Amino acid sequence: MTAPSESPAAGAESTASRRRELASFLRSRRERIPPEQVGLAPGRRRRTPGLRREEVAQLAAVGVTWYTWLEQARDIQVSGQVADAIARALLLDQTERRHLFTLAGTADPHPHLDCPGMSPAIRGMIDQLEPLPAAVFNSRYDIIAYNRTYGRLVCDLDAMPVEDRNVMWLAFTDPRWRERMLDREENTRMMAAKFRTSMAKHLAEPAWKELLKRLQQNSPEFRQAWERHEVLQPGGHVKRYLNPEVGLLAFDFTHLWLGPQDGPRLTTYSPVDEVTRERLERLHRIVLAEQQAVAA
């Protein structure tokens, strides 16, 4: 005798219940994380505990509106790659990660992966690398976390809106960043090619489509680079910046992936010569002195 199948109404209610449970779970995990644990300033006017929705969206490299809908239990699809990014942003352990994927109704693309996320250990590693600039980026070029030296390498990142802390956005649209990033045309062309390579794995994801649309609308130079259809894998070359406080800085850089090679990476910048090293140490002293003056 065949068991009766679930009615359409019952199936719809089951799906809606799962969405509500997912929304509640995400809110609970978000509210337990102090901002400083993921490298964000605590701020003075926080109405809710833990992280804000827009901060989780930034850390996971998804759209703020899309993530808000997710926490409102709206009927939206969650891909495995996006669920993976959210799990990392919320510092989920393996049990929590499995629960997230079950509620999202999608397969875990990395079921046996450890979940380092932006842990205190990684945050501490970035700080300990000073005076060397260091930052964590995802494959969309979002700046997820950075130490004080990187924060002042080109512009004052702390003074920028969270949604603008993306190297692609800055390199193609921010006048100060464009002026101070030397060899800009070569670098931006390579960045667009690497972004196209990475985006092939994320074509349907809202955050990627949102960034692409934003760049196309605001940068003729990006549109021109994008239309070339060039592709590149991440690689190393010398980067040069004209810092407004200490002058020309030239670096080699090294990537340390914190998961799969298309996931977050820790990038450190090493001076290519003694002049850069001395200027970098001077920049670090300037930043420390300013922070001490504010704290006094």
Rank of each mutant, 00 (worst) to 15 (best):
A3E: 15
P4Q: 04
E6F: 11
S7Y: 02
A10G: 07
A12S: 13
E13A: 14
T15M: 04
S17W: 09
R19N: 02
R20V: 06
R20D: 12
E21T: 12
L22G: 03
L22P: 08
L26G: 06
L26C: 09
S28T: 14
R32N: 03
R32C: 06
I33F: 10
I33W: 11
Q37S: 15
V38C: 07
G43H: 07
R46Y: 08
L51S: 07
R52S: 09
E55Y: 03
E55H: 05
V56N: 02
Q58T: 04
G63R: 01
W66L: 01
L70K: 00
Q72A: 01
A73L: 00
D75M: 00
I76Y: 04
V78L: 10
Q81S: 13
V82G: 00
V82A: 00
V82H: 00
A83I: 00
D84I: 05
I86K: 05
A87T: 12
L90W: 03
L91G: 07
L91N: 13
L92K: 10
Q94C: 08
R97H: 09
L100K: 06
L100Q: 05
P111Y: 00
D114L: 06
S119Y: 09
A121E: 15
R123L: 14
G124M: 14
M125Y: 14
Q128N: 13
Q128L: 08
L129R: 08
E130N: 12
E130G: 11
V136D: 09
F137V: 08
N138W: 12
N138M: 07
D142F: 06
I144G: 10
R152I: 05
R152E: 12
L153Y: 14
C155G: 04
L157Y: 15
D158H: 13
A159V: 04
M160W: 05
D164S: 10
R165G: 07
N166M: 07
M168S: 11
W169G: 04
W169H: 11
L170V: 03
L170M: 15
F172E: 02
T173F: 05
R176F: 00
E179V: 01
L182P: 01
E185P: 02
E185A: 14
N187T: 09
R189D: 02
T197L: 05
L203H: 12
A207H: 11
E210W: 01
L211S: 05
K213N: 10
R214F: 03
L215D: 06
Q217M: 07
N218R: 15
E221Q: 12
F222G: 05
R223W: 08
Q224L: 11
Q224N: 12
A225G: 03
W226N: 10
E227Q: 15
E230V: 07
L232M: 14
G236H: 15
H237R: 15
H237M: 13
H237V: 09
V238I: 13
V238Q: 12
V238K: 12
R240W: 10
P244A: 07
P244E: 07
L248S: 06
L249H: 07
W257Q: 06
L258R: 03
G259Y: 03
P260H: 04
R265Y: 15
P271T: 05
P271G: 01
P271F: 06
V275T: 14
R277V: 04
R279G: 02
R282I: 01
L283D: 06
R285Y: 00
I286Y: 11
L288P: 02
L288A: 10
